[in-house]
């Protein structure tokens, strides 16, 4: 039986049910007394904690180093401006004017390297917070939470994933989309579960995600949520691409209602607990097959 594995729950389209799957899979594995960690990597809008309660045991800030220019030492040579690849230094040489545009800075440190006059020092800039919650003896929730107004959640997500020390099962609840935050998350996973819905929008975003996972060489399977709505195109696509359908969740007002109140299907309904246990078995089997 697989005891150690990183599973990312992802989707191109938002709102397909990533959090529903992540939290219920976590809960089912917790009930099996397994060693399991859930990492909420949707740092822009983290929600897992609405479903899973625990005690805060550790919290740390994620920061970057951003430049401070000492104008008494600055010679207005413009080298830092040339070195900055993010247009984060506003510079007018003739007017002897120089400013750091903090919102645009990525904290790469190039300007500090560029300055030959010791005019640039650095200060800490808050990007987000990582918090660790103890759920039960062997179960932990780690939340990445980006500070509102920050340009990118990537650093906070990376810090949260790096904070997992678990030797057990790790579930990564990924951010939506197919850009950097998504890639940073799935790149860390052994196996990726893509959650979709059977609509043209869902299918279009699913295809995009599958293409990236192929490039990254990550094995994946699919869960169709709100099955029964929409059309059958997604099933044809899965067959054609030979991608396993791991689970299907029907559109059901009862399920929607449990989720909307912050409840867990695996607590409310023994049948669903069974299905999520089965889901883990399917993932482990698929992963075993793919790595052979």
């Amino acid at each position: 039986m697989i005891e150690k594995m990183k599973i990312a729950i992802a989707s191109g389209k938002g709102g397909t049910g990533k959090t529903l799957i992540s939290t219920n899979l976590f809960n089912a594995l917790q009930k099996q007394n397994r060693n399991v960690t859930l990492v909420d990597c949707d740092a822009e809008e983290p929600n897992d904690r609405e479903f899973i309660a625990g005690d805060l045991i550790l919290s740390f800030d994620v920061t970057q180093q951003i430049p401070v220019i000492d104008e008494s030492k600055c010679t207005y040579c413009g080298k830092c401006y040339d070195y900055c690849n993010y247009n984060a230094i506003f510079f007018l040489g003739e007017q002897r004017m120089i400013r750091v545009m903090e919102d645009l800075c990525h904290g790469c440190g190039a300007c500090s390297v560029a300055c030959e006059f010791g005019a640039i020092t650095e200060k800490e800039d808050l990007l987000g917070t990582v918090s660790q919650y103890s759920i039960s003896e062997n179960c932990t929730l780690i939340e990445a939470r980006m500070k509102v107004g920050v340009h990118s959640p990537v650093s906070t997500i990376k810090a949260a994933i790096n904070a997992t020390e678990s030797n057990g099962i790790v579930i990564l609840d990924a951010p939506p989309g197919t850009s950097c935050p998504f890639i940073q998350t799935v790149a860390q996973a052994d196996y990726v579960v893509l959650v979709t819905e059977p609509t043209p929008f869902g299918l279009s975003d699913l295809k995009q995600s599958v293409e990236i996972l192929k490039t990254l060489g990550k094995p994946c399977g699919v869960i169709v949520n709100r099955a029964g709505l929409g059309d059958l195109e997604v099933y044809n696509y899965l067959k054609q691409e030979n991608i396993p359908l791991l689970m299907s969740i029907p559109f059901d007002r009862e399920i929607a209602s449990i989720y909307s109140n912050g409840g867990l299907l695996t607590n409310e309904d023994a049948e669903w607990e069974q299905k999520f246990n089965q889901l883990f078995t399917s993932i482990a089997t698929e992963y075993g097959n793919s790595s052979n």
């Binding site: 938002g14 822009e44 990118s152 912050g262």
Partner: peptide, 25 residues
Amino acid sequence: PGIGCPVISTITGVDDVVIVTEPTL
């Protein structure tokens, strides 16, 4: 979706922002 850079670029200087939400926690 989200609240990051692309969202800020989307709403900067528009006349009206309409947020579509759903009745879940």
